[in-house]
Design a protein around this nucleic acid. Structure first.
Length: 587
RNA sequence: GGCGCUGUAGCUCAGUUGGUUUAGAGCGCCGCCCUGUCACGGCGGAGGUCGAGGGUUCGAGCCCCUUCAGCGUCGCCA
């Protein structure tokens, strides 16, 4: 009977089995050899007896050799059980040993999870993936995806694939382009998301669509951003925003239950965009800890401290305060470091107030009355022993810096409980934001997002005041994804494109196919897309996406195992009517 | 494109204000011994362009410049 290396239990004693796997560890006692065989499911101890013909071969086994063993399962002698492994009550007495494949000495130890240089891990990814951490992470990822498919199937969704070779629509993220051989000089783009196609599937009458969809964006990488990534893409017809939130929230709760066995983390709190910015200084707050921001500008309307008074008197100004628990014991040098950090984050400066047990300390204490300090401390519910950090600036900037500083404090004070999953919805985003490059309104999300139903008349008079039926799902300080109710009336969609400065010709050229589809009876619809990689990363307790992706790219978007990208022979370029203008490679 | 961190044995790391001879440790590797181990144990051994190039210096793993790679971050990610 063929069994995996994690299967055998006491009840199997007496049966004859075949095990296939890798040589995880050998303990050679001279007169007796123990070999642990490993596969994805676990590890089983094999015993080689010196009287047996396979003993000599067992002596030659080395790390990562691939073997097949047949033998009898037996209970381990009393006192030699190993409680640390699942199969620890039994062992297999080797009867037959076959070495299926030999391994070179691996460049790092595969049977350990010790930290190894990322260069090496990526170059020898197949060995890295054999290690316990990656086996575990990819297993979690599989369970997540399986739970997602099960959930949406049970809710009558259809998984439909959309193409990878699509039309270039050069808004938003930079696209990866694919040259067409058959149409010289023309290009496909790889999808940034299947957005328009899923909307067309709604027009096509599928009603409830989902897809585990690969997306590509040619932008710079981060710990939480890879150039290709996987989305749970969802779209539904005849729904309101609440319908979408209900489905997605239920899906996440189901996933956590199924994949992690963790009780439902819901219901998810909901915040309006404006509110979440004011309280946390970001639209993706880590809600595992409090430390809410407070605008204390009113306290300083009449202060002698000019930096604060200027912002307090200015209509767009703010003085944002955040509490640093236990911060009163920090040294002046520590505060200097914080100030430096704040400046790097974009602050003009930082004013700190230490509520020390022997009195209030601050570099600007001569400007601060006792009443001022008491007011700020009260607003932040601060106590003796805490420090208060204040940022005076134009409101948006002050909030942004304070929000980042809040995260920093959260890390320094160890407030991020790794076992907690704090989901939250953010709703009521603005439909447009001012593009800092052009000074003109640009879609905050994408141009297919519907505004609140009663706000269309604002499109000409005050577009920046329009709120969108757009929502984000946030988990532990990461944006898991966004969605919206879409525009389903072609004339409204045309108005938005026009408002964004597109001529009729441009609209036709870029989105003609889509507008035409809207012309043929488009149902009201909306949906959402969530980053599967980020979900898996957070569920696995990892801090970067590479730990939950089998073959990820490095920070400069290279694959170190395959060594991609590479130049290609001239002949291939000719077939594609391409000519490289890149400088010749140096070395 | 900017800022920061890292690079010393196969791996993980230590290496003092620039000067101690032969640049160390643990793991791994190789050999021998070992019948109940499970991170087995014991004895012995091999293994280093200190990422690369240049400079300062009587002298550089350590200081300076350039460069490569990886990581983090800002910009960027409709």
């Amino acid at each position: 009977m063929k069994v995996n290396c994690g299967a055998l239990r006491l009840a199997d004693a007496g049966s004859h089995v075949e095990l296939n796997g890798w040589m995880n560890r050998r303990r050679d006692h001279g007169g007796l050899i123990f070999v642990d065989v490993r596969d994805r499911d676990g590890v089983t101890q094999i015993v080689f007896d010196p009287k047996h013909p396979s003993f000599a071969l067992a002596e030659t086994l080395r790390h990562e050799d691939v073997l097949r063993v047949r033998g009898a399962v037996r209970r381990r002698p009393a006192g030699t059980e190993n409680a640390k492994i699942e199969t620890g009550e039994v062992e297999v007495a080797a009867d037959e040993l076959e070495v299926l494949s030999r391994s070179l000495v691996p460049p790092f130890q595969v049977n350990l999870d010790e930290d190894v240089d990322e260069n090496l891990r990526m170059q020898y990814r197949y060995l890295d993936l054999r290690r316990p951490r990656m086996q575990r992470n990819l297993t979690i990822r599989h369970k997540i995806v399986k739970a997602i498919r099960d959930f949406f199937d049970s809710r009558n969704f259809l998984e439909i694939e959309t193409p990878l070779l699509v039309k270039s629509t050069p808004e938003g993220a930079r696209e990866y382009l694919v040259p067409s051989r058959i149409h010289p000089g023309s290009f496909y783009a790889l999808p940034q998301s299947p957005q328009i196609l899923k909307q067309i599937l709604m027009i096509a009458g599928f009603g409830r669509y989902m897809q585990i969809a690969r997306c590509m964006r040619d932008e710079d990488l981060r710990a939480d951003r890879q150039p290709e990534f996987t989305q749970l893409d969802v779209e539904m017809s005849f729904v309101s925003q609440d319908d979408v939130l209900e489905i997605m929230e239920s899906a996440m709760i189901f996933v956590w239950q199924q994949a992690l066995g963790i009780p439902a983390p819901g219901p998810f709190p909901r915040y309006r965009h404006e509110e979440v910015l004011a309280r946390y200084g970001t639209d993706k707050p880590d809600l595992r800890f409090g430390l809410e921001l407070v605008d204390v500008k009113e306290t300083f309307r009449a202060t002698e401290f000019k930096v604060f008074r200027d912002q307090a008197e200015s209509r767009g100004g703010a003085v944002i305060a955040v509490r640093y628990p236990g911060g009163a014991t920090l040294s002046r040098r520590d505060f200097d470091g914080l100030t430096e950090l704040a400046k790097q984050l974009g602050a003009k400066g930082l004013v700190w107030i230490a509520l020390a047990s022997d009195g209030v300390k601050s570099p600007v204490s001569k400007f601060l009355s006792d009443a001022d300090v008491a007011a700020v401390a009260g607003a932040l519910a601060a106590q003796t022993g805490d420090a208060l950090l204040l940022f005076a600036d134009e409101r948006a900037r002050a909030l942004d810096v304070s929000g980042r500083m809040r995260n920093e404090i959260g890390s320094r004070c160890n407030l991020r409980d790794p076992g907690r999953f704090a989901f939250a919805w953010v709703t009521d985003f603005p439909l447009f934001e001012v593009d800092p490059d052009t000074g003109k309104p640009a879609p905050a999300h994408h141009p297919f997002t519907a505004p609140n139903d009663d706000q269309w008349e604002l499109l000409e008079s005050d577009p920046l005041a329009m709120r969108a039926q757009h929502y984000d799902l946030v988990l532990n300080g990461f944006e898991l994804g966004s969605g919206s109710i879409r525009i389903h009336k072609p004339d409204f969609q045309r108005k938005i494109f026009a408002m964004l400065g597109m001529s009729d010709e441009e609209i036709e050229e870029r989105f003609g196919f889509f507008i035409r589809a809207l012309d043929y009876g488009a149902p009201p619809h909306g949906g959402m897309a969530l980053g599967i990689d980020r979900i898996a990363m957070l569920a696995a307790g990892e801090e970067n996406l590479r730990e939950v992706i089998a073959f990820p790219k490095t920070q400069v978007a290279r694959d170190l195992m395959m060594d991609a990208p590479t130049p290609v022979p001239e002949r291939l370029l000719r077939d594609l009517s391409l000519k490289s203008t890149a400088p010749p490679p140096k070395d």
